[in-house]
Design a binder for these strands. Structure first.
Lengths: 241, 241
DNA sequence: TCATTTCTGTAGCGACCACTAGGGAAATGT
DNA sequence: ACATTTCCCTAGTGGTCGCTACAGAAATGA
């Protein structure tokens, strides 16, 4: 009973013309390809009655807050405001939906690490920015606290799902390590620097901060933690120590 | 079908004497009060056929590995090797069993923080010992990696359970903070020290190291992380800086 | 108008969840 | 021997899980 249904449970039986004019929005905009300019032929049959991206975002927030397993398909259909068959038709099964959610999360909320590593001149500056932005991102209003990648597959009885997020976490640490190694090779960091340990320390800090955010820490408190954590870095500028 | 049951599913109908001699161990030892010397009257009816502590330890390991919700009562009865009614009779419901497990975990596996805070002369020494012992404890063979208190109630749809472990985590951080504050007051740490932030940093490190242990980090790797983390502390001995 | 295609809601699948009634079995005290 | 107490096993309870068969509704092209 979402829409288009009267209180007595029967479908509306208005004239065709009136129904056509009632919801021209979604498929119409997609046909015109408004932003991309790509002209997409409207598919043959009945178009779906909900916006796929909006529904996906709702699923993202639900998974973020409660995790993969604690979020039931029933929960999902409720917050997405669609029926179960529509969910399965549009997103495959629950696991596929979660994978898509993780991907969207990565580009939408979890990209600050990649951006910092790409844009900052040194590993240290990148890590400092990552920790500072994590303090903000993990406590922002409008979405659950902490990091979906850290928490959403904890205690998950589907090993593939748990492993998939674990891989993402470890890949992040590997990215830190290679960036640090590059700075060591370039003489920005001292030759004896243990890049692996430094990278793992950074990963542990991020994950610990995420847990702290879930446990109620504020942005200011996490920023103070981040600042303390940054004091481990050797005090070198761009010259070898 | 655990014991005392034949392959055809019928109960054994041997002579009374033989049955009595078959399992004298558990209740007998309890009656004698072997270690404590306390003489405990054997209770009136049929004694339970399993050792309560052993079963509790099995439940502890199961909850530790899979978390509160992902560990089903069916899982528990299997690893504890008892029937569901026996579990409910001996431990109450699933939540009571988990609470008891958490308590046992605290005294059995998670007491190194309290011990370090009580025994070490300075906050810094205590934290250093905590991080070092965490590196060992979180990667020990014979039990799941990481900390039960950190992970077992993640994504838990029973808010009270989740909150209960959250309270334990935050209580640990509060303990760090008051210990640090004491050192600041005593002049062991500089007057400007931000005790709250330092304590939260320590908590985040522990939680991050626990996550790392779950993600496959070795003891040596965690020790390296701990050593790096200790470099944030002001370089003072027992004299004011 | 009409066949075709696709979506949507209903209604329910088998499996598992936490939990328990009830009866027989095994200990007790007398 | 016998009543009493307590435990354990069998066999379920109602509820929720992820998922889907089916039929009608709403779009298409001809």
């Amino acid at each position: 009973m979402h829409s288009m249904v009267n209180d007595d449970g029967t479908m509306r039986a208005e004239g065709r013309g009136a129904v056509e004019a009632e919801r021209p929005g979604i498929a119409e905009a997609e046909r015109l390809g408004a932003s991309t300019g790509k002209v997409k032929r409207r598919p043959r049959g009945r178009p779906r009655s909900f916006d796929r991206e909006t529904a996906l975002e709702k699923a993202l927030l639900a998974f973020w807050e409660h995790g993969y397993e604690a979020t039931s398909v029933s929960d999902l259909t409720r917050v997405m405001d669609i029926g179960a068959p529509s969910l399965y038709a549009a997103f495959g099964d629950k696991r596929s939906l979660f994978e898509e959610v993780v991907q969207v999360y990565g580009t939408r909320y979890g990209s600050f690490t990649d951006r910092a590593l790409a844009e900052e001149p040194t590993a240290r500056a990148a890590v400092e920015r990552v920790l500072r932005e994590a303090a903000t991102a993990y406590t922002e209003a409008g979405h659950p606290h902490g990091c979906l990648v850290v928490h959403a597959a904890a205690n998950c009885s589907t090993p593939e799902v748990e492993q998939s997020l674990r891989d993402r976490r470890n890949a992040n640490i590997a990215a830190f390590e290679s960036r640090i190694r590059a700075d060591v090779a370039a003489g920005v960091l001292p030759p004896g620097t243990d890049a692996a340990a430094l990278a793992r320390h950074t990963g542990a800090m991020i994950q610990g901060m995420s847990q702290q955010a879930r446990d109620g820490a504020s942005r200011e408190e996490l920023e103070a933690v981040a600042e303390i954590a940054m004091s481990i870095w050797p005090r070198t500028g761009t010259h070898t120590g």
